[in-house]
Computed example of a mutant assay.
Amino acid sequence: MRVWSSKGNLKIIGGISFVVFLVFFSFFPDLIVSHEKAPTLMLDDSGNVIAKPPYSPMELPPFGTNNIGEPLLYNLLAGAKYTILFVTIVCLFRFIISSALALIYAFYIHRFRNLVQRAVEIAYIIPPVIIVFFLLAPMLFVFQENSLQFMLLLALVLIAIGTPPLALLIGDEIKGELQMDYIKIARLQGVSNFYIFKKHIWRIIKRGLGFFSFKIIYSYSYY
């Protein structure tokens, strides 16, 4: 009971519940808001035109409409499943690739470990948003923004810029585990790296699944 009552876990549970809520109503948006289009013109009691699409949230709550009178709340809910699917795929590949790189970083890279760490830290002095903008902005002249090619390119870029710091984070945690006395004793007894991974390091990777879930929630709000 103590574990589930901690503030960190409550935040994760609340975030996951919010995503589940969005996914459910993304498939059934009519349960919350009608898809019926707003009237072409909004008239006052005297028959004078006072507004026309797109309506503002004040004119047609809660979020107003688009240019053709469709409720924005309906469109946001209906499109949430695609955004969540995209974010989940990006975060899943980031986690898988980062975990693999973290194992290589912790087990096999020794001489150039500080060099790798400094290179990643220096590279991320520039905010990732700026990197994404300069990489993808020229592509808009080649691909349509909603095309499959552009979405694949966007996914590759987001995976590429998010993988190195996550790999470094997981790798440092694994490296700290490898410095424990019981790991050193096991190595002196001839225990293989695979056995150490299976018995000790895999626990760290599993804990990363919780971070992976939180990352999906954070990335969804970011995108």
Rank of each mutant, 00 (worst) to 15 (best):
1 M>G: 11
10 L>F: 06
10 L>Q: 14
13 I>N: 04
14 G>E: 03
18 F>A: 14
19 V>E: 06
23 V>N: 03
26 S>D: 01
26 S>T: 00
27 F>L: 15
28 F>S: 10
30 D>Q: 15
33 V>L: 12
33 V>G: 03
35 H>K: 14
36 E>F: 11
37 K>M: 15
37 K>F: 11
38 A>P: 06
38 A>K: 08
39 P>V: 11
43 L>I: 10
44 D>L: 11
44 D>M: 13
45 D>C: 11
50 I>C: 07
55 Y>A: 10
55 Y>E: 08
61 P>L: 09
62 P>Q: 08
62 P>G: 06
63 F>P: 01
65 T>V: 14
69 G>R: 09
70 E>F: 10
72 L>V: 14
77 L>I: 04
77 L>Y: 04
77 L>T: 06
78 A>P: 01
78 A>R: 06
79 G>E: 03
86 F>T: 04
87 V>Q: 06
91 C>W: 00
92 L>N: 09
96 I>A: 13
97 I>S: 03
97 I>H: 06
100 A>Y: 11
100 A>H: 06
106 A>Q: 02
107 F>E: 02
108 Y>S: 12
111 R>G: 11
111 R>M: 08
111 R>D: 06
114 N>W: 10
121 E>N: 13
122 I>P: 06
122 I>Y: 05
123 A>E: 06
124 Y>E: 09
127 P>H: 02
129 V>E: 07
132 V>M: 12
137 A>E: 01
137 A>R: 07
138 P>S: 07
140 L>I: 13
143 F>V: 08
148 L>S: 05
149 Q>T: 09
152 L>D: 02
156 L>T: 08
158 L>C: 04
159 I>E: 04
159 I>D: 02
164 P>W: 13
167 A>V: 13
169 L>D: 02
170 I>W: 09
170 I>P: 04
173 E>P: 00
176 G>Q: 07
177 E>P: 02
178 L>P: 06
178 L>W: 05
179 Q>C: 04
179 Q>G: 13
180 M>Y: 05
183 I>E: 04
184 K>N: 11
184 K>W: 02
187 R>Q: 15
189 Q>C: 12
191 V>I: 15
191 V>P: 00
192 S>E: 05
193 N>S: 15
193 N>Q: 10
194 F>Y: 10
195 Y>N: 11
200 H>L: 08
203 R>M: 15
205 I>G: 05
212 F>E: 07
216 I>R: 03
217 I>M: 01
219 S>M: 11
219 S>F: 09
222 Y>K: 02
223 Y>F: 11
